[in-house]
Design a protein around this nucleic acid. Structure first.
Length: 288
DNA sequence: CACTTGACCTGTCCGC
DNA sequence: TGCGGACAGGTCAAGT
């Protein structure tokens, strides 16, 4: 569920909260949280401070002063939540969370030298965090295969055309969800952008007109930028680094709005299944 | 090779 | 109220 806008919101939150802090202790559950990491991952973190936090697609890269980085993928239900210290007094952004974490979904706890903590929680355990030398992060197979960042200036409509043209016989929704085509689009923003471009998610990419693809390119960027502005979407478990929900769902046009009326034409929004996922469409605006 | 489906998990919701 | 089953949807492995 955390897609590009949610992960970006977590990134900017952590940027404000943990840069420069020194790791004092770290605990984690068994191998699941740290696949392929040094067995004593915690000992590689202690004493290091947080240098920078980057995002690539839906992944976060927390670079430490020791030359190691924590690479995190939240998958469906992962959360990275920072909790202050009660000694900081009232007004700290995540005061309300003091005492509520860790809970049974907590997989990793990182404690900073000022007593504040960063929790990696994941109800469904699909997410992962791994520790590796920073110079090797770019060599991770999934990083190498990742498509371009849709919000970067360098990602042009021509790139979008070219990338879609490689998958002419797939339906457009499956292509939007494919991280090797474009990085960061998930189920929410695929549905939202297809509605915006009036394209049925089952349309084969090869049948899209040039103007439809141009519109879709704009819509993908529009919904992602709007969502970042709104702090992301929280339809179930997503929260930002301060444990707060995002408000994009208040603005969503079709996602999770089945049985409500299309704001463009008044038709009842339907939920169907495309590419194995729940998919929301306006059957009038989006003709197959 | 291109493309689709199933598995990984756990909590929630729905119908009986 | 309890219980089985469908569902949620990111990614990769396995299947067609």
């Amino acid at each position: 569920m955390p897609e590009l806008p949610e992960v970006e919101t977590v990134r900017t939150g952590l940027q404000k909260l943990i840069i420069g802090k020194t790791i004092h202790a770290a605990t984690h559950d068994t191998v699941r949280s740290f696949p392929n990491s040094p067995e004593d991952a915690a000992s590689y973190m202690i004493g290091a401070s947080v240098d920078s936090i980057r995002r690539r697609g839906k992944a976060l890269i927390i670079a430490l002063s020791s030359g190691y980085s924590l690479v995190v993928h939240l998958k469906m239900t992962g959360q990275l939540v920072y909790v202050g210290d009660v000694r900081f007094g009232a007004g700290h952004p995540s005061d309300s969370l003091v005492g509520t974490l860790p809970d049974k979904s907590t997989r990793v706890t990182i404690e900073f030298s000022d007593g504040t903590k960063l929790y990696f929680n994941d109800q469904r355990k699909f997410g992962w965090m791994r520790l590796m030398p920073s110079v090797q992060v770019a060599d991770l197979p999934f990083m190498q295969r990742l498509g371009p960042e849709p919000l970067e200036e360098s990602f042009t409509v021509a790139d979008f055309h070219e990338r879609l043209s490689r998958r002419p016989r797939s339906n457009i929704k499956a292509v939007l969800l494919d991280q090797t085509v474009i990085a960061g689009v998930g189920n929410i923003y695929a549905d939202e952008s297809l509605w915006g471009a009036r394209i049925h998610p089952k349309r084969l990419t090869g049948t899209l007109t040039k103007s439809e693809k141009e519109l879709l390119y704009k819509e993908v960027r529009f919904v992602m930028n709007l969502s970042i502005e709104k702090g992301g979407s929280s339809n179930q478990t997503y929260v930002n680094a301060e444990g707060k929900k995002g408000s994009y769902m208040d603005f969503a046009r079709v996602f999770r709005r089945e049985n409500q009326l299309c704001q463009r034409c008044g038709t009842v929004i339907e939920k169907i299944r495309v590419a194995g996922r729940g998919t929301h469409i306006c059957p009038t605006c989006q003709q197959e």
